[in-house]
Design a protein around this nucleic acid. Structure first.
Lengths: 209, 209, 209, 209
DNA sequence: GATGAATGAGTTTTCATTCAT
DNA sequence: TATGAATGAAAACTCATTCAT
C-alpha cells in the first residue's frame, strides 16, 4: 500500500577515511535527534554538524530514516551485548543475587546512555527504530527461554516463552520508561529494589528460590 | 525552545454534520497513522481519505499535530475511563480476584481496540502524543497510589508511587506489547495468568494477601 | 529493471483558474524546451516562466517528464486531427490530386509549428515524447490501411499494413527531418513535388492510378 | 549559446589494457542507454557496470556526453562504411538489382545491430548524438548526389540533393523505425520488397530504368 | 461553512566531476 | 594509472497552511 523507503545503508565504507565519515554522521545524527527530535531533523543539518558534505552523507545512507535506523541498531546492539554478557557472568550465583545483579546492569546501561535513552526512546517509533528494540528484546527472550527450558520438569513453567517475555518486557520497560519520565529514579536504590521484588515475587510463584 | 503549536481543536462542532466531519477526519487519520506512520502522514491525505476538503479540515484542527493529539486523547480517555471504572467495581473483593479481574479488563480493552493499539501505539511518541498516554497512565498511577497510601502502616511500602508505577507500567506494557508482537497471546489464558502471577508475586513480597 | 517515472498528469483541473495554470505551465515548458533543450530544462524554471509557484506545478504534474509528455501529446493530437480531417476532405478526388493535397497539408502543419517542430523534434526521445509520435503515426496508418483493405482484389497489395506504413513513415519523416535539417525546403515547391513523385511512383507500382 | 563541452575522448588508449577499459565503458554505456535513456544515465552507473572506477572513466572521457558521442560515432562509422562499400560493389549492375541489393544491405546492417538500433536510436537526439547520425546520412547523400550529378542531362532531376535525400531518408527511416516498432518485419521479404517498390517507383518517375 | 487552487519555504536528493592516496 | 571518497551546486519535490470564491 505504501512503499517503504529503504532502511539499509547504501554501501559499506572500505577505507578508514570513509569509516570515519560514517561515524561522524551517526554521532551528529544522535546529537541532533536528541536536540530537535526526528521531525525537525534534516539531512543537511546532520551533514553540516558532522562536518561532511551532503553528498557524502548520501553515499552511505539513502535517506534520513536509514541514518536514525542505523543509530538505533548500533545502540541496541551494544545494549544487547552488554546484557547478555552479564547474564553469562552471573551464572551459578544464588537466584536473588542474579536478579539484583541483572536489574542493576539494566539500570546502568540505560543510565550510561541517558542522553540517548531519555531523548531518543520516544522517537523510536518514527523511523523504524522499534525494529532494533524488538530484535534486542527478542534475543534476550530467546536466551532466557533456553535457560528456562533446561530446568527440571518440576520447576519448568507451562510456557517458557511467556515467562521469559514477562520478565524481559516488564523490566525493560520499567527502566526504559523511567529514563523518560522519572530520570531521577535511575539513581534511587528503592526503585531498583522494587523491580527486583517484582521479579523475585514472580519467581516465588513459579516455585524458584 | 520554539513556540508551541496549538494542540486544541479550533472549535467544538455543534451541528450533527460538523460532528460527522470531525469524526471522519479522526477515523481517516487513525487509519493513515497506522498505515504510514506520523512522519509520512499528510493533512492533504487525511482530508482526502476523510472525503473532506482540506479547507474543512483546517476549520476544525489548527494543524497536523492537533489531529493526532485529539486521536490519542479520544482513545486514552476511553481507556482510562473503562479502567478506573473497573478499579472501582472490584473494591472489596479478595486481592487475587481483584488482580485477575483488572488484568482481564486490561486485555479486553486492548483487544477491543486492537487496530488502534497494535499499530498506533508506537507512533504516539512522534508528535507529543505521549502526553495523552502518559496522562492516562498517570491517572491510574495516582489512583493506585492513593489506595496504597491509605493502607495501614504495616502494609504500606516504602514509596507508594514506585509501587503504583511498577504495577501499572509493567502490566500496561506487557499487554500493549503483546498486542503488537504477539497478538495471539491476547486470547491465551496462560498469558493472562502469568501476568497475574507477576502482580500477585509482587504483592506477596509486599506482604499483601 | 529501472522504475519508470510517472508520465500521467496528477489531477485534472476543475475550475477555470486551474485550467489556466496548466495551460501556462505547458506554454512555458514548450518555450523553454525549444530554448534550452530537455536536459537544461528545470521544473523551477518552468514554474517561474509560467508565473506560477513550483507547488502549483507539482499539483498537476508529478515530474519534469510528464510535463513534456503532455506537451508532445497535445502537439501530436493536433497534428493527427488536422491530418485525418484532410484525408477525409480529399476523398473522391483523382489520385494525384489527393497525394498532392495531403503532402501539402503535411508540410503546412509542420511549417505552422516550425518553432515547435524544428527544436522539439530532436528532443522527443528524452521524455517519452516518442509515444505520442508513434500513436499519431499509428492512427494515420490504421486509417490508410482501412482504405486499402476496402480496395477491390485486383488493386489490393499483399500486405495493406506494410503499404500504409511505407507511405506514412516515409512522408512523415521526409518532412519532419527537413524541418530539423533543411528548414528552407519546407518552402521549396520542388521538395514537395519530389515527395509526391515518391508516393505516386509507389502507387504506380501497385497499379493504382 | 554556452560553451561547448568537449566531445573528444581525452586520450587514445595505446595499451591493450586501456583499450579494453574503453571498450568496457562503451559497452556498459550502450547497455544502460538502452535500459534507462540518456537523461537517467549516470557516469557512476556506467563506471560500475563497466567494472571500472569512476576515476578511470574520467581518464578516458572528459564528460558524460563524450561517452555517448563516441558510442554513436563508433556505430555510425561502421554503418556508413558498410553501406558505402555496398554502393561501390553494385556499380554496373542493372538498376533493380542495385536497389534490391542496397535495401537488403540496409536491413542487414540494422538487423545485425538490432539492440543498438532499436533502443538507442531514439535516444540519440538527447545529447547531440544526432551529429553522427546526420553525418552518416549526409555522407551517403553526398555520394548519391555525386552519382546523380554525373548522369546525362536527360536523366538528371531538377535538384540532385533533394533526390538523394528522399531516397536516403525514406529508406533509412523505414528500416530504422521498423527495427523499433515492427522488428518482425526485418525478416519479412515482403517488407523489403515494398521498400524496393517505393524506390523503384520513384526512379521510374524520374525516367530511370 | 465548504471548497480546492495556490503558495513557497524548506527538504530531500542527485550526479558530474575532482583529487588525495 | 587506478581508485573511490568526497564534493556541492543544482535540481527535484513535499506539504502544512492560507484564502479567494
Amino acid at each position: 500500500m505504501s512503499e517503504q523507503p529503504a532502511l539499509k545503508p547504501r554501501k559499506t565504507p572500505r577505507h578508514a577515511r570513509s569509516r570515519a565519515t560514517v561515524e561522524a554522521i551517526l554521532e551528529a545524527a544522535a546529537h541532533l535527534l536528541q536536540a530537535k527530535g526526528y521531525a525537525r531533523l534534516t539531512t543537511n543539518h546532520v551533514a553540516e554538524a558532522a562536518g561532511v558534505s551532503i553528498g557524502s552523507l548520501y553515499q552511505y545512507f539513502p535517506n534520513k530514516e536509514s541514518i536514525c535506523h542505523a543509530l538505533a541498531e548500533q545502540h541496541f546492539e551494544e545494549f544487547t551485548r552488554r546484557y547478555l554478557e552479564s547474564l553469562d557472568s552471573v551464572a551459578g550465583q544464588p537466584l536473588e543475587a542474579q536478579v539484583r545483579a541483572l536489574v542493576r546492569v539494566g539500570v546502568e546501561i540505560v543510565r550510561d546512555n541517558a542522553a540517548f535513552s531519555g531523548n531518543l526512546y520516544p522517537e523510536l517509533g518514527s523511523f523504524g527504530g522499534l525494529d532494533p528494540v524488538r530484535a534486542s528484546r527478542q534475543k534476550i527472550i530467546e536466551v532466557l527461554k533456553g535457560a528456562i527450558e533446561a530446568l527440571p520438569d518440576s520447576l519448568r513453567p507451562a510456557d517458557p516463552e511467556i515467562t521469559a517475555y514477562i520478565v524481559t518486557v516488564s523490566c525493560g520497560q520499567l527502566i526504559g520508561e523511567a529514563a523518560i519520565h522519572r530520570p531521577a529514579w535511575l539513581n534511587d536504590p528503592e526503585f531498583e529494589n522494587q523491580i527486583c521484588q517484582l521479579v523475585l515475587g514472580y519467581y516465588n510463584r513459579l516455585g524458584w528460590t
